[in-house]
Amino acid sequence: MIKVDKKEIFRYLGYRKNLPDEEVMGLVDRCLADLQAAVTPRCIFRQYPIESVYAIDPAGRPKDQGAKEAARPLLRIAGMEIRSGSLSRNLRGCESVYLLGTTLGLGPDRLVARASVTHMSRAVILQAAAAAMIEAWTDSVNRQIMEQAAAQGLYCRPRFSPGYGDFPLEYQQDFARILQLQKEIGVTLTESLLMMPSKSVTAVIGLSREKEGCVLHGCEECTKAEDCAFSVSEDA
C-alpha cells in the first residue's frame, strides 16, 4: 500500500489552498481505494559513475551569453553523452549517480480509460490521485536509494528527469535501453517518447560526498514554476 498525501491530489486537481467539498472528498477516497487495488508498483535503480565532466563553470552558469557550450557541459553516464546545463548544475560535485525507473503499472491507465466512458469526474480524480501516487512511490524508492547511498557515505541530490530544464526528453530511449525498462518493470516508450504505463518516472539521482539541502522533489528546475497552478511552494 502506497501512502498518498491527499493534499497532493487536491493540488493536482487545481484546488490550490481550498479543500474540496464532501462529495468530491468521498469520490477521492473511493478512487484512491480503487487505485490501491489496481496498481502494481515496480522499480529499478542502478548506480553508475559519472565518467567525465567537461568545462563545468563553478557557478554552473554561463560566463557570458555567447558561451553556450560552456553552459552546457558534456556529461558521460552509463554510455550516455548528455549536454545539459540544468542537469550538470544538479550534479555539481557528484561522483556517481543512480539511474532510476519507477511505475505503477497499467492499472491506473485502465481505470482512467474505464471511467472516461462513464464519469469524467471520476477519470479526472483518478488521474490526479495516480499522479500523486507515482510521486509517493518514487519518493519511497528515492528514500531507499538515499539509505544505500548513506551506507557509502554519499548524499543524494534531488532527482532529475529527462524533459526537465534542458535535459532532452530523447534520453528516455537511453534510460529504456540501459535499465531495460520494458523487461524489468514493464515501462515502454511511444514513438513520441511518452512512457506507458503513463504513471511512470525515470530520473537521475546525483551522489556527492558533500551534503546539500536535499528535497525529494521541488519546482526549482521547471520553467513553468512562476505561473503554475500546481506549484508546490505556493501551497506549502
Binding site: 486537481l13 481550498n18 474540496p20 469520490l27 464519469h119 469524467m120 469526474s121 479526472v124
Partner: peptide, 11 residues
C-alpha cells in the same frame, strides 16, 4: 468551483 465539481455537475 473546481474541475471535479464542474464535471460532476455536468454529469
Amino acid at each position: 468551483i473546481f474541475l471535479p465539481q464542474l464535471l460532476m455537475s455536468a454529469e
